[in-house]
Amino acid sequence: MRAVRDFTGGVGFFFEGLGWVARHGRWWLFGLIPALIAFAVYVIALVLLGTNASDLATFLTPFADTWSWREIFRGVVAVALVLGGLAVAVLTFTAVTLTIGDPFYERLSTEADPLESEDDQPWWRTLPRSIRDSLVTLFYMLLFTVPLFFLGFVPVVGQTVVPVLGALVSGFFMTVELTTLALERRGMARKERFALLRANKASALGFGVAVFVLFLVPFVAVIAMPAAVAGAALLVRNRLAPVA
């Protein structure tokens, strides 16, 4: 089936990106800098959330003060807050890292995907647009992932169907984020990028799901980020918008 072939081909582009950074070690190290900064920020935020989860749960549930089982209830709320924080970290790590490292990853993407002519603008001019596009992408992602989060508590379905759907949704939007650099360099606006990825959904899903699964492991996300950026550039160059 073509869809299966395109999906596995999308997965393959991540490994092509991995091979590219393995052959260009200095660019891998260069791409690690913003990923490490973002990782440090997330670790600090999650540690603060974890150490203050009980107090935050108490603050958020004043209506439970008179309940005999308030400690159990607030313990559940505290755990939910921590798990929610972890989920948000996984979903937003790519967007935040790309925003922090825009000038870094712009150069890395350019090296992996050289163009004779491109819509070349200084990174400080494109940064506001990148932040806006990332927020729009995050909004659409949350439209899908928030309902899936609550469906996760439904017996059987929540442990079988929902994780698969969650990986597909998150994977697609990761591809949206990671291919932005290469597609913007081709002068494509957000709506055009979304349309292109929808038209190549299987390839976009294959690449994004592979990245999403790897990014579930925190430090692996840091190490693999330069490979994901390079792989996205190669996906655009060789599959989505081939160079003539």
Rank of each mutant, 00 (worst) to 15 (best):
V77I: 15
T94P: 02
F15H: 06
W67T: 07
A202V: 03
L148D: 04
L196N: 09
A233T: 04
G85H: 06
F144Q: 04
F172E: 03
A233S: 08
D6G: 07
M141H: 15
G158S: 07
V154Y: 01
L138F: 15
A57F: 07
Q159S: 15
G25T: 08
L143M: 11
S54T: 15
F207N: 06
L143V: 12
V211A: 10
P114H: 10
V11N: 02
L240H: 04
L49Y: 06
M188W: 12
A232K: 00
N238L: 11
F13I: 01
W67K: 09
L148Y: 06
G17S: 09
L91A: 14
G17M: 11
L60S: 12
E106C: 03
F93L: 10
G166F: 14
V161K: 02
L138N: 12
L196W: 08
W69Q: 15
M174C: 06
P103T: 03
A53K: 10
L181Y: 13
G10E: 08
V4Q: 13
R185L: 00
N238R: 14
V154P: 03
R70D: 09
V79W: 02
R74S: 09
V146Q: 10
V96P: 00
T58K: 14
F153H: 14
A167C: 01
V211S: 03
T179M: 01
E184P: 10
L32Q: 09
L165M: 04
V21W: 05
A53E: 08
A233C: 02
G10H: 06
I37L: 04
D120P: 04
S170K: 06
L234S: 06
L235T: 00
W123F: 14
T160I: 11
G75W: 11
T180V: 12
A233W: 05
L181I: 15
L183M: 13
G25M: 07
F144N: 01
I131M: 07
Y140N: 11
A57G: 00
A241I: 10
V4K: 11
A112E: 07
T137E: 14
G31L: 03
W20S: 05
L205A: 06
L216G: 08
P103N: 01
G101K: 05
I131G: 02
L115F: 11
R26M: 10
N200S: 01
A224N: 09
V220F: 10
V136M: 13
W28L: 15
G75S: 09
A45Q: 10
A210K: 03
R198M: 15
Y105T: 03
T179S: 07
T92Q: 13
T175N: 02
L235M: 04
M225D: 06
L178Q: 03
W20P: 02
D119G: 00
Q121P: 11
V211T: 12
T8S: 12
V82Q: 10
F14C: 02
A78H: 11
A3Y: 11
S109M: 06
A244N: 14
G50R: 09
R2K: 13
V157M: 12
L32G: 01
L98E: 14
G31V: 01
L183K: 06
Q121H: 15
E106H: 12
V213F: 04
F59Q: 13
A221P: 04
A95H: 10
P122F: 09
V156E: 09
R198G: 13
N200Y: 03
